[in-house]
Amino acid sequence: MKKSTRKLINTIVAEVILITIALIVSLPLFLAVSISFQSPEEVFSYPPKILPKGLYLKNYVDAFNLVPLARLILNSTIMAIAITAGKLTTGLLSGYAYANFRFKGREVSFALLFATLFLPAETVMIVPLFLIMKKFGWINTYWALTIPFMASATNTFLFRQHFRSIPKELEDAARIDGATPMQYFSKILLPLSKAMIGGAAIINFVYAWNMYLWPLIVTMEDKMKTVQIGVRMLISSESANNWGVIMAGTIVVLIPTVAVFLLLQNLFVRSLVRSGMKG
């Protein structure tokens, strides 16, 4: 077989497999959108419908009435933005410390931070963390939802790595011009790190928006719960199992992260890979 013919066949085979995979992977999401616009009769019709007859918007109205979805969205937004801002701030500052300064205790403190890299405190240590929240009187507050997650080894490493890649000559030049270390940080390092900060912000936001176990145990009142718990509430409160309403709520909850992801996919992917790889 000629090389070009073989290449063509390969391309066609790859296309077919990729289309199949892409369809299978995106099918759950596609069907969820479709179901969210179907009336109860359509949802329960047999065989199940692929496309809705029209746009049955009552599902969305019902989802907002069945659980306090608007309030939950507000809570999740506050939580995700606060965690993102916190992680970026602590990460930038400590990343700068490790990248640009030599000081006593540098190695020891770095090792202490490193040791927490694979420790998801919001799951492994829910019991003691919960007891500590009780001591602080933080149960059912935004504090409990945000403060414990405002620092992470991942963010520190990401920014340390990035700052180390910036030529040392810049720092020397700034110093000769009379800039203080903090001026160099805010006037030169930060503007040079915009893409990095943006990428890390998206990753942190998605992480926080999607948290589940911690908000589940640390909030008792409905008005303090988050959207992820709201989805669970929709399933259990919708006694007739009206999947149209459940899917409407689900779509509302997943739109922010999926939209951000699709809009900023390249930045997202680049930062994600960098957060995982050393060197």
Partner: peptide
């Protein structure tokens, strides 16, 4: 294809569970 295949990354575990609970539902699931 990339965009479609990458989407579940942005979807939360709770929602992944919800979507599959529906799809696997014995009565209405596709």
């Amino acid at each position: 294809y990339k965009a479609l295949i990458f989407i579940p990354y942005a979807i939360s575990p709770a929602i992944s569970g919800t979507l599959w609970t529906f799809l696997l539902n014995p009565v209405v699931g596709h």
